[in-house]
Amino acid sequence: MSLEAKIKSGEFVVLGEFEPPKGADFSRFLNNAKQIKGRVDALVVPEMGNAVMKASSLGSCAFLKQHGIETVFQVCCRDRNRLALQADILAAGALDILNIMAVPGEEITHGDHPQARLVNDLDLIQLLETIQRLKIGKDLAGVELSGSPKFCVGSTVNAGAFGGVRDIEMENLNKMIDLGVQFLITTPVFDLHRFQQFIKHIDTSKGAVIPTVLLLKSAGMARYIDRNIKSISIPKEMIRDIQKAPDKLKQCIQLTAEIIGHLKEMGMAGVMISTVGWEDKLPQVMDAAKL
């Protein structure tokens, strides 16, 4: 069943985040993907996440497609102008990549090429508008296309937003849904209470909300995220449990599985499991979460 069909059926969706390699050797990337082929509904392939240069999402999605794996192709405002974005989106359509996800892209200055020139020709809402327009058969210049791409469209939402920022996030979310967004992947969720406060403001019947569940690697990583990333809070008990555990990896996997379980109980549309470089651990996480 395709991701789109799965979302429509209301069944619990499982996505895996799969960072493309920094290099032309895709063998490890493929091996990791093969391990979970058939167990996830699609692999989300980031477009240079954290502005770190890697192989492109489009190329990596096409590569995985050759091996029969469904993907979510990420298009990002940061590095491409309207010509390049439209060109890539058409190519993805022709390559039969079924899902597309628009993201704004993290700051270039936070990545590994801080001297690069920022593009941001289109913003996130305009990029979604562009996808919608291409889907109905016209480009941004109003020229009719010879064949239009068909995608299940997604984007991101900041689940850690609160106060005035949350109000703005909700406004954006409504705009995204009006522009044909069918699924929304959230920022990583650890604090379920905080997530519940957020999710009650969203009409989940309008779009599938898919929280990201991030596999922590250590108590240090958890502390760092909790202290430095405003949109993510990690409960102290979770950090303490990792610190105390004799087998840290096992504890981190267990913790991820528990969060997935709770999100499933909450009736979320699915989860995206992010392992940030530990893609080979994805089968273990899925085993623990009984997925």
Binding site: E107, I108, T109, P114, Q115, A116, R117, L118
Partner: peptide
């Protein structure tokens, strides 16, 4: 380009 607008 970090000293141009790319750097904020």
């Amino acid at each position: 380009w970090s000293t141009e607008r790319a750097g904020g």
